[in-house]
Amino acid sequence: MSKIIDLLILFILGVLAGFNIFLTFIVAPVLFSNLDNRHAGEIMNLIFPYYFSSGWILGIAVYSLFALKTVKNKEIIKKFKLFVVALGLLIILNMALHKTVLPIARSLNIQYYTLLKEDKKEEAKIVKDKFKKVHAVSSSINLINLILEIYLFQHFLLKIRKKED
């Protein structure tokens, strides 16, 4: 049973990292290089809620699977302290993106296009500058999440391989 749990944890972490890489380095650049910013942004706004929520939901799934491993072996927590902390951080950061950063960015985006429609270009520019700052924060957190996902996968894989030796 422990090997199945290990494989599930690795699979989920691999899926998280794969989604992040695919969305960040393939989907977003293709959309923004082939569509105007508004339409590409609208498509990304359809994807982001699923992407961010899957990050924290799958993170909780990994945490739950890991908790199952501790039922038989309480000492495992000592070996995986950094793993548990990094996983907790990943969950929190994905929740922050989903529940805080994304709604703020969406609101600013709506304000920006409303102001443009009303021909209030100066006010629109101010809102766009705010959006750029929020986007920079979002992109930074997303990059941190990618680093965490790769770290978690690699760390867990090495620890379970060492256990098998």
Rank of each mutant, 00 (worst) to 15 (best):
S64L: 14
N109E: 13
E42F: 06
I147F: 15
I141F: 09
L97M: 12
Y112I: 10
V84R: 07
F80I: 00
N37M: 11
N20P: 02
K72N: 12
A17Q: 04
Y63T: 07
N20H: 06
V134M: 14
I160A: 00
E118Y: 01
R38W: 13
G88R: 05
A105K: 13
A136D: 11
E75F: 05
L46E: 07
L10S: 05
L7F: 10
V15Y: 08
V127F: 01
V27S: 03
K74C: 01
L23D: 02
L65D: 00
I77N: 01
A28D: 02
T114G: 01
N109R: 13
L93N: 12
E42Q: 14
A28E: 02
L13Q: 11
R38K: 15
L97A: 00
L23V: 15
N34G: 12
K120H: 07
F48T: 04
K3V: 04
M1E: 02
Y112A: 13
N34M: 10
N34L: 11
V137A: 14
K132M: 15
L46Q: 13
S64Y: 03
K99Q: 08
S33Y: 00
L93G: 00
I160H: 02
L8N: 10
D119A: 13
D119V: 09
N94Q: 05
V30H: 03
S140A: 14
A124S: 11
A136C: 02
E149A: 15
L108P: 10
N94Y: 14
L7G: 00
L82H: 10
F22C: 08
G55S: 06
F25C: 01
K120P: 03
I12R: 01
V15N: 05
I12P: 02
I147S: 15
I147C: 12
T100S: 08
M95S: 10
N34C: 02
N45Q: 14
L16I: 09
K159V: 08
Y63I: 01
A61D: 02
I9D: 04
G59M: 07
L65M: 10
K128D: 11
Y51Q: 03
L7I: 02
L146P: 03
G18H: 06
L90V: 01
F80T: 15
N145Y: 06
K78V: 05
G41A: 05
N145G: 09
L158H: 04
P103A: 06
V101F: 03
I104E: 10
K121G: 05
D119S: 14
N73C: 07
Y151H: 08
A40K: 10
L90F: 15
G59I: 11
I26V: 13
I141H: 07
D6C: 00
H39S: 10
I126M: 14
I12H: 00
L82V: 07
L152A: 11
F52K: 12
N37E: 13
D6F: 05
P29L: 03
L157W: 08
K132P: 07
L82G: 15
K78T: 09
K159E: 12
F52M: 04
G59V: 03
I91M: 09
I150A: 11
F153R: 01
K3R: 08
L115F: 07
K81C: 06
D36Y: 06
D6Y: 07
Y113V: 11
T24W: 00
L7R: 10
T24D: 04
V85K: 15
K133P: 01
K130S: 15
L7W: 03
V85A: 13
K163L: 11
E164A: 14
A61P: 04
A86G: 08
K128M: 12
K125L: 15
